[in-house]
């Protein structure tokens, strides 16, 4: 464990908590892509199947459980409790265009052709595109509440810190997980455009982030 990965995991947790609390307290999921949250819940489900078969550390187990619980709790807020405020009209990204290529690729490019490994690979590839429905929804509505942008900021920060974690681990331990790194770089690139808007608009105190 290194400071980059630990702070990355903390940023990830903060992002998920920000989103959950925003929906819970405002009793609304307006502007939130339920599809992205479904994809994230699928990412955690297919990645953390080893929760019961491989014990790595207390931290690892606790964080996996927390991520799974919060992911499903957020999905249930969006699709059940506050479903009236769910803007399915704007959340129109065709997730099948993500799931099919990601599933196909996880069968083609993986470390070993076993169910657990293929599901893990699927979760890695899926995570890199899971935010797209949310980013698409923001471009479609042309705006995002500032709390939603803070959620995206911490999510992007978590991914950026993971890149630093991999540089550190390669330098210190010679660790290099090609599938995770390539997929992580692609995922982080998707946040670049958002980061630009975030720093030039939201942090200028304009409250809402409105797209040009």
């Amino acid at each position: 464990m290194n400071i980059f990965r630990l702070s990355g995991d903390v940023c990830h947790l903060v992002a998920i908590i920000i989103l959950f609390l925003k929906i819970w307290r405002s009793k609304s999921c307006a502007g939130i892509s339920g599809k992205s949250q479904l994809l994230f819940a699928l990412v955690f489900t297919t990645r953390y199947l080893d929760l019961f078969t491989a014990f790595i550390s207390i931290y690892n187990t606790v964080m996996k459980v927390v991520f799974l619980v919060l992911a499903y709790a957020t999905v249930s807020l969006i699709y059940f409790r506050f479903r009236k405020s769910y803007d399915s009209e704007s959340d129109s990204f065709r997730v099948e265009f993500l799931l099919v290529p990601v599933a196909g690729l996880s069968f083609l490019e993986n470390y070993s052709f076993t169910p657990l490994e293929i599901l893990w690979t699927f979760s890695i590839y899926l995570e890199s595109v899971a935010i797209l429905p949310q980013l698409f929804m923001i471009t479609k509505t042309g705006e995002a509440e500032s709390i939603t942008t803070h959620y995206l900021f911490f999510l992007g920060l978590y991914r950026t810190l993971y890149l630093a974690n991999w540089v550190w681990r390669y330098h210190e331990e010679g660790f290099f997980d090609q599938i995770a790194v390539v997929s992580g770089v692609v995922q982080t690139i998707f946040y670049c455009d958002f980061f630009y808007l975030y720093f030039t608009r939201v942090l200028r105190g304009s409250g809402k982030m409105t797209l040009p």
Partner: peptide, 10 residues
């Protein structure tokens, strides 16, 4: 391929 990569990351 090399599948001895530890899955210790979240």
């Amino acid at each position: 391929e090399d599948d001895k990569i530890p899955k210790d990351e979240l």
